[in-house]
């Protein structure tokens, strides 16, 4: 870890002032991703702006019946918040599928969105990586790419976004509230994370001088028929190979509305509104679910070590939609997939 300066922000305006005057500075919230990356010299900020004491740690109901989640609410508190457990159980489930309880106690809502890829080459400063050093090349395309993306990749980068929480937020139509030198703006969740294209160094559309203040959720839906299924190399405390968030609104045996988003398969949480449209108006059965999975994966492309993910995702989607339709969401404690 390189030497750096430390400053504590007094309020949001102070935090923005600090970051605007020093482009090599970084915010620190829970520290669980940033400190890890600094220890490996992947991140080398000259100054850390500690935002962890800012009063952005409340969960409040909004006038439209939704929820406003402060950017500093710890992942564990959010998962166990009574309003989240009762109204957005898909979000609770996705958060509890990620990391460990110690890490969730530290990890912030805003930091979770901005966590960086777990591509091993990104972490290894001795190897080329376009995300870490633009223009140096991608070591993963012809390297160890078992955990890498199958959707939306580019020749420059095939990394995945590792978050579980963000997959649920994508499915639930969250919005991201940010503040910068020019004031506040709101970013739709689908527009927050980026595909790699030829600028994989940019994970998101957050500007370098902006701070996330809150995540907002619309009024609750999909409280009964939902599931978050995370498939990984061991049953807990491992990143997803493929994860699926599914939510349905059923009328009789027919799907009135659907949400479908995947994690571990792309540079961003992968929500496919086309696949959702293909579910709408259809009977909630295997044929429908498989058709939606095939549609979602129509452009999937495997690399040397990760082609298995395409079939894994196809089956996982059908399984998760079945769990959602049956109202038997995947338990994050009892790991049996039913």
């Amino acid at each position: 870890m390189i030497n750096f300066q430390y400053v504590r922000a007094n309020d949001v305006a102070d935090a923005v002032r600090h970051i605007a005057t020093d482009p090599t500075a970084k915010f620190i919230a829970g520290g669980t991703n940033l400190i890890d990356l600094m220890k490996d010299d992947v991140e080398r900020p000259s100054r850390l702006i500690d935002i962890s004491r800012l009063p952005l740690n409340t969960v409040e109901e909004t006038t439209d019946g939704g929820l406003r989640i402060g950017a500093l609410v710890p992942n564990s508190d959010l998962a166990y918040h009574p309003l989240v457990q009762s109204r957005y159980p898909l979000l609770t489930s996705a958060i509890l599928a990620g990391a460990s309880q110690q890490l969730r106690n530290m990890a912030s809502t805003g930091g979770n969105l901005l966590q960086r890829t777990r591509c091993a080459y990104f972490y290894d400063t001795a190897t080329p990586c376009n995300k870490r050093t633009p223009g140096s090349g991608c070591s993963a395309i012809n390297g160890l790419n078992r955990i890498h993306a199958i959707l939306g990749t580019s020749e420059a980068c095939i990394a995945t976004h590792p978050s579980d929480m963000c997959v649920a937020l994508a499915a639930l139509d969250a919005t991201v509230h940010v503040t910068g030198p020019d004031g506040e703006r709101t970013i739709m969740f689908a527009d927050f994370h980026r595909l790699p294209g030829d600028t994989p160094q940019r994970d998101t559309n957050l500007r370098p001088n902006e701070i996330i203040t809150a995540i907002a959720l619309p009024a609750p839906r999909f409280v009964t028929n939902y599931s978050y299924l995370k498939i990984r190399d061991r049953l807990s405390y491992a990143f997803a190979l493929v994860s699926i968030a599914a939510a349905l609104e059923l009328e009789g045996g027919t799907i009135a509305d659907a949400r479908l988003a995947l994690g571990g398969v792309a540079h961003k949480p992968w929500r496919d509104t086309g696949a959702e449209a293909a579910l709408r108006g259809q009977p909630a059965n295997q044929a429908t679910f498989t058709r939606a999975a095939d549609l979602l994966l129509r452009d999937a492309k495997g690399f040397e070590h990760n082609a298995f993910k395409i079939d894994l995702a196809r089956r996982g989607i059908a399984r998760t939609l079945t769990q959602a339709a049956n109202g038997t969401p995947q338990s994050q404690a009892d790991k049996k997939v039913r």
Binding site: G31, I35, D36, Q101, Q102
Partner: peptide, 9 residues
């Protein structure tokens, strides 16, 4: 609250 002290400044 339990936390990871190696990733805490």
């Amino acid at each position: 609250r339990r936390i990871i002290s190696c990733l805490t400044l």
